[in-house]
Simulated assay, not measured.
Amino acid sequence: MALDPPTMLTLSIALAAAAALYLAIEWRSIREPSLAFWSAGFATIAVGSTLALLRSSGLLLVGIWFANGLLVIAHGCFLLGVARFTNARLSRAWLLIIVIWLALLLLPDEPSWSKIMLLANSLLVALLTLRASFLLRPHGRSLSVGAVQLRYVLLIHGVFYLIKALTAVIPGTLIDLAAFRGEIIQISLVEGVMAIMLIALSMTGTERYRREKRIERLAARDPLTTLYNRRALDVRAPRLLEDVSPARPAALLLIDIDNFKLVNDLYGHTAGDRLLVTLSEMIRSLLPDGALAARLGGDEFVILLSNTSSEHIAALGSALREQFHHSAAQTFATPQAVTLSIGASLFDQPPASLAALIEQGDAALYASKRGGRNSIRLVDRTLASSEAQQ
Score class of each variant (00 low, 15 high):
residue 358 I to A: 00
residue 371 G to C: 00
residue 353 S to R: 02
residue 353 S to Y: 00
residue 342 I to Y: 05
residue 354 L to V: 07
residue 316 L to M: 12
residue 371 G to W: 10
residue 361 G to I: 00
residue 320 L to Y: 03
residue 326 H to V: 15
residue 334 T to Q: 05
residue 318 S to R: 07
residue 349 Q to S: 14
residue 364 A to H: 04
residue 350 P to H: 07
residue 317 G to Q: 04
residue 327 S to N: 14
residue 351 P to Q: 05
residue 323 Q to N: 15
residue 330 Q to S: 15
residue 328 A to L: 11
residue 324 F to T: 08
residue 323 Q to C: 10
residue 366 Y to S: 07
residue 360 Q to W: 13
residue 357 L to V: 05
residue 335 P to H: 08
residue 349 Q to K: 09
residue 322 E to S: 07
residue 319 A to Y: 02
residue 356 A to V: 00
residue 359 E to W: 05
residue 324 F to S: 08
residue 359 E to P: 01
residue 335 P to M: 07
residue 347 F to K: 01
residue 362 D to M: 09
residue 372 G to R: 10
residue 372 G to M: 06
residue 361 G to S: 11
residue 357 L to Q: 03
residue 317 G to Y: 02
residue 360 Q to N: 07
residue 343 G to C: 11
residue 362 D to T: 07
residue 333 A to N: 06
residue 322 E to Q: 14
residue 358 I to M: 13
residue 327 S to W: 11
residue 370 R to F: 04
residue 336 Q to K: 06
residue 349 Q to D: 06
residue 357 L to F: 04
residue 346 L to C: 05
residue 358 I to E: 00
residue 356 A to R: 11
residue 371 G to M: 08
residue 368 S to P: 03
residue 315 A to C: 04
residue 314 A to D: 07
residue 352 A to R: 14
residue 349 Q to N: 02
residue 363 A to M: 14
residue 348 D to V: 02
residue 364 A to R: 12
residue 341 S to I: 10
residue 358 I to W: 00
residue 360 Q to C: 10
residue 332 F to C: 03
residue 340 L to M: 10
residue 320 L to I: 04
residue 333 A to R: 14
residue 329 A to R: 15
residue 329 A to F: 14
residue 354 L to P: 13
residue 362 D to P: 13
residue 353 S to F: 08
residue 322 E to A: 14
residue 329 A to Y: 14
